[in-house]
Amino acid sequence: MEKVLEVKDLHVSFKTYGGEVKAVRGVTFDLHKGETLAIVGESGCGKSVTSQSIMRLIPEPPGRFDGGSIVFKEKDLTKLKDSEMRKIRGSDISMIFQDPMTALNPTLTIGDQLTEGILQHMNLSKEQAKKVAVQMLDLVGIPSPQVRLKQYPHQFSGGMRQRIVIAMALVCQPEVLIADEPTTALDVTIQAQILELFRDIQKKTGVSIILITHDLGVVAQVADRIAVMYAGKIVETGTRREVFYNPQHPYTKGLLNSVPRLDVDGAELIPIAGTPPDLFSPPVGCPFTARCPYAMEVCDKVYPSATKLSDSHGVDCWLQDERAQKLLANR
C-alpha cells in the first residue's frame, strides 16, 4: 500500500494557566492512498489537536509543537516555512471542521468562498474557477448550483452547509482530506447522507480520508482502518475488521462494549468506569491503568511497547507484549 502521509512520534502541548497540557504524546500512524482512516477516542484525547497539527493550524501560543515528524510527499511538514505550508493547505491537504453553521463566513457568498481556494492554488481565471465551483457543488449534491453560488451561508440548511464545506475542501482535488467530526452537528438522516457522500467522493477521486469521530457507528460505516486514541496516544490500530471483531486493547474493548451492537445478541452495555488521566502530568506508564480491569503492576510503571499482531494490527498493551506471550507459551 502506498503511503501518502506518515506521522511519527508527534508531540504537541499547550501552555495554560493551570500548567502545560500534554495533548498529544507521541502519535504515530500512516495514511494509505485511497483509504479512510478513522481516529476514535473519548473527548479530550487529542484527536483534533493531532489533525490540526498536520495542517499546522494549532494556534501558537498557547500551542507548541514539541517534536516528531509529519511526512507528506517526502517533505516534513513540521519543517516547512509558513509560505510553503500555505501552498499545501487547501490544495494537497484539506480539512473539514465540525460545525457547518460556523465554518462559513456569513458575509461572503458561497461562490466567493468556493472560488477563492481555486484562485489561490490553481492557475485559473475567475470564469474557469466558477465553472469548477459549479461542478463541485454538483458533485456534493447541491441542486441548481449556478443560482446557489450567489447566495450567502444563512440561506442554506445545516446539511447543505456541510456539503458546501466538503465541496470547498475538495475543490483543489487534495490527496488528503481531514474531517474532524464532520457529522456530529447534524441530525441522523443528514449524517447518513453526508457519510454516503464521503464514500461516493472517495470512489470518484481516490482521496485519502482521515475521519475523526467518537461515533463508532460512523466508523463502522465508512472506515477502512481505525486508530484508537487514548490520553494523547494511539493505543491500538488495525483494519475495521480487526478492531471491531478482534480488539486487543482493554480500552478498545471497553469502547466497543459501551455502544449498542446489532450483530451480537443480548450484549450488555457496559460504560468504561472512571475518567481519563489529566494531561498536565500524564502517567509514565499505561494511561489506562486506573480504569483497566486487567491492570498489572508493570502497567503503572512502564509504558507498554508497541506490539504487532499482524501487518495491520498493532497495540500498546502489556497483555500483548511478546514477553508475556513467551511466558505463557513456556508454561
Binding site: R86, S91, F97, A103, N105, E116
Partner: peptide, 15 residues
C-alpha cells in the same frame, strides 16, 4: 471558525 476555515484553505494572512 470561518477564520480557521480560511486558514485551512491556505489563504495568506493579508487575505
Amino acid at each position: 471558525d470561518y477564520i480557521r476555515t480560511a486558514k485551512a484553505k491556505g489563504l495568506s494572512p493579508v487575505k
